[in-house]
Design a protein around this nucleic acid. Structure first.
Lengths: 249, 249
DNA sequence: CAATTGTTTGCATATTATTGCATAATACTG
DNA sequence: CAGTATTATGCAATAATATGCAAACAATTG
């Protein structure tokens, strides 16, 4: 068994289970735990996973927590927000899903921009309210305690009456193969409806969310028109998306 | 179970419920309370939650400066809130209009109370979200910039499908002769719809709002079932309302 | 082919991290 | 202010880690 082969297996396990135990891997690939430990250390240095006491966890899993993102990735999100704002023109109708990246986007909207915004997120609605030239329309429905956005039939019905110019679609995970995915089915339903309600789908995502996936699928990667990350558009991690005719910012 | 994994679970619980008890977590993840305590201490040091006596609470997810600054007659509002809460029973469906008095009411709802709440106010929805046993349903629609509640046809249509047990109807002014009145026609429309959507109308108002009136009328004084003020129910300012068969609290 | 060099691997060892328990101190409750 | 619950602290058992070392292995060179 080649070392690289082993490392791929480890990464795969991490991707599937979001965590691995050192001992399990050692048994799985029939090497000593020391070797696995060294492999994980290398993968950690390569930023492919996070080494923790007793094993490793996926970066996506580690980062999925809202507070941490809030605190630690502000600069990245701000960069993404700035790129995203360039897509907007006066008079447009814009749909915002939830998430802290979209929240940052809402925060940074220039005061001069006159647009109409729909959102099921109370946090984003709250931010948008402070923009004088922005008309804010709240998408109603049962509030998910978890993600703090309106979900369910009412929200989906309301979206059915909308055709927005742009939808800023936050997502938990994005993967070339598995598309956009989420933890929570309620959220998936509402995001599917948001895609249907928009002419153009823009996915602002932190690069850490790339190459990870969750249980439930929102859509295929092809349904995204524009992908915005904090990385340089020419970054090698983004190249394959260009093949699918997705704009990269 | 990896330590990091456990920490993620704790964070997740905090995110969902806004607070966790040490003992609950210990049971949930099957470790001693000491271990959970240490985990929470670490998460606290990492600024991912706030450690409190007996457990942890989430960091305020967004700083609602606007509402926090409204400290006008907070004691009076708190007193009104306490009286209003006594009207509520588990299992009821409750409608909240906007306003700082209703916000105070939402804040002070006891954690044990299990009710379903509808509201067009993002500030109140936000408060209600932190109550474990409260289901929150947001009434969607265009957000009024000054009152920060959803107004217009969408909101009114949504209300048409509801029959709540109680409606806490905030109002700008209340007058024996002119009834409940407002500055803003949009708000009047939505409040009219709220009255139609409820079996019982409760008006929590500070005494300062008594005996004043505005341009637009929500309803006659007779349509109010219960009037709650910070005054003693026997106060002479309230006597005349009793004649109209309105309960005074 | 033998010698050399560098890498990988497993093992032994010392070090460090994690956990639960005991106990004393402190905070909350009525 | 007493009674209870929660917390901080030290300690010991266990598990995981880092480190050095030697054997195994591969690639390169004379």
């Amino acid at each position: 068994m080649l070392k690289e082969e082993r490392k791929q297996i480890i990464l795969n396990e991490v991707r599937i289970h979001n965590r691995v135990l050192l001992n399990d891997i050692a048994e799985l690939v029939s090497v000593s735990v020391d070797t696995v430990r060294r492999d994980i250390k290398e993968l950690h240095d390569e930023r492919k996973l996070k080494k923790v006491h007793g094993g490793a966890i996926s970066l996506g899993f580690y980062n999925h927590n809202a507070q941490e993102k809030e605190v630690y990735s502000i600069e990245k999100k701000s960069l993404i927000a700035k790129k995203a704002i360039q897509l907007l023109k006066n008079g447009q109708v814009v749909l915002f899903s939830g998430g802290t990246t979209n929240l940052e986007l809402a925060k940074e909207l220039p005061a001069s921009l006159a647009i109409t915004c729909f959102t099921p997120s109370i946090a984003i609605a709250n931010q948008l309210l402070s923009k004088n030239n922005v008309e804010v329309i709240l998408i109603g429905g049962k509030l998910s305690k978890d993600s703090q956005i309106a979900v369910g039939g009412t929200a989906i019905n309301m979206l059915a009456d909308i055709k927005a110019d742009v939808c800023f679609l936050g997502t938990n995970s994005i993967d070339f193969e598995h598309g956009l995915t989420e933890f929570d089915w309620e959220i998936v339903e509402i995001k599917k409806a948001m895609i249907r309600a928009s002419r153009k789908v823009v996915a602002p995502v932190i690069s850490e969310k790339l190459n990870s996936y969750r249980r439930y699928k929102i859509c295929n990667i092809e349904e995204v028109d524009v992908l915005i990350t904090e990385l340089d558009p020419e970054d090698k991690a983004l190249l394959k998306f260009k093949d699918k005719n997705i704009s990269i910012l």
